[in-house]
Computed example of a mutant assay.
Amino acid sequence: MTRPLRIGLIGASNLAITSIIEPARKIGDVEITMVAAREISRAIDYAAANNIRSVAANYQELIKSGGVDLVYICLPNVLHEEWGTLALENKLHVLLEKPAAPDEAAAMRLLAAASKNNCRLIEAFHYHYHPLFTAIKQLVLDGNLGTIKSFSAKLDVPMPPSENAARWDKELGGGVMLDIGCYPVHWARHLVGEFEPIETITKFAETGVDGAVVAHVKFGNGAIGTIDVSMTPHNGQRYSRLKLEMTNGAIEVRNLVLPHYGHDFNWRIGDEWHHKEFKGGTTYFYQLQAIKEAIKSGGKLPTEGDDILKNAQSIMAILNKQVG
């Protein structure tokens, strides 16, 4: 691709400003060329505020415009498949907000459409591209800490229904596991391996969605794990923690999701603790940079293809073990 990567936004979201628009301004050969929203007045205001030159009357018009190479879809979970599939059928690459699909069947259909049309289907696990996660992964792989005995992840992000209606709406694919819960599932799979849920304890909301989940899992290598996630409103702060206990050490991380807002990264080899802090760009900057380079070179990304299906399968396995 000799011209800049042209990105269209499906959904005039606040998240797109942080995850796509701001990083694109810092990365060469990337342009945000068009936006579409549920209401055209919203898209017009959004385009003016964010210096986007074109507005589509609706999502379909953007997809069929010929003016974009990749679409970023930031819509309620149940709409991902419909608009992701249409974009792929029109030979566009697709970056889908996580989770890319609300279930295994939808993931398989989306991946089939991507394969048929020779387009990229990428799930927006932006944290994976930050140097912090690269360092954690390298510590696990280099062997100095031994093998993993246990995995523990806790992610608590209070989301009042009055401000996050879709997340609490069962018909729109709401619930904590189909929201922030997909993060620790992804961490577990990429740091330890595929797992089988043993038990899932769920706190259901009045709307019928899972508001808080604690899942106990077992990995193929014999390690055990706990995934503890909640979006239930309370007066506390957001909390994000990852712990790996290993045969010759340990790794502890705070704020793996958004380390550019501050993080702690500590690891122990034997009895000696070490610490490192990473400066630089946001997780979204590194993600968009990696996507641009992969589309240009044809290289594979760690958050596309079968990874999307495996994460959907793991989330569904946890949900299918629910008791509450």
Rank of each mutant, 00 (worst) to 15 (best):
L141T: 14
L141Y: 08
L141C: 13
D142I: 02
G143Y: 07
N144D: 11
N144A: 13
N144H: 13
L145N: 03
G146L: 04
G146A: 13
G146W: 08
T147Y: 10
I148Y: 05
I148A: 09
K149Y: 08
K149W: 03
S150N: 08
S150V: 01
S150A: 14
S150P: 06
S150M: 03
F151L: 00
F151R: 00
F151N: 02
A153H: 12
A153R: 06
A153L: 12
K154I: 14
K154G: 03
K154Y: 02
K154D: 07
L155Q: 01
D156Q: 08
D156Y: 09
V157E: 06
P158W: 01
P158A: 02
M159F: 13
M159H: 13
M159Y: 08
M159Q: 15
P160H: 12
P160I: 07
P160V: 06
S162P: 01
E163N: 11
E163Y: 13
N164W: 11
N164M: 02
A165E: 04
A165C: 00
A165D: 00
A165H: 00
A166Y: 12
A166C: 10
R167F: 10
R167Y: 15
R167Q: 09
R167M: 12
W168E: 06
W168P: 05
D169T: 03
D169H: 02
D169M: 02
D169C: 01
D169A: 07
D169L: 02
K170S: 11
K170P: 02
K170M: 13
K170V: 14
L172P: 01
L172I: 02
L172W: 03
L172T: 07
G174Y: 09
G174K: 04
G175R: 01
G175I: 04
G175S: 05
V176T: 14
V176K: 05
V176D: 05
M177K: 08
M177R: 08
M177E: 06
M177F: 10
L178V: 05
L178I: 11
L178N: 14
L178P: 00
L178E: 01
D179T: 12
D179W: 03
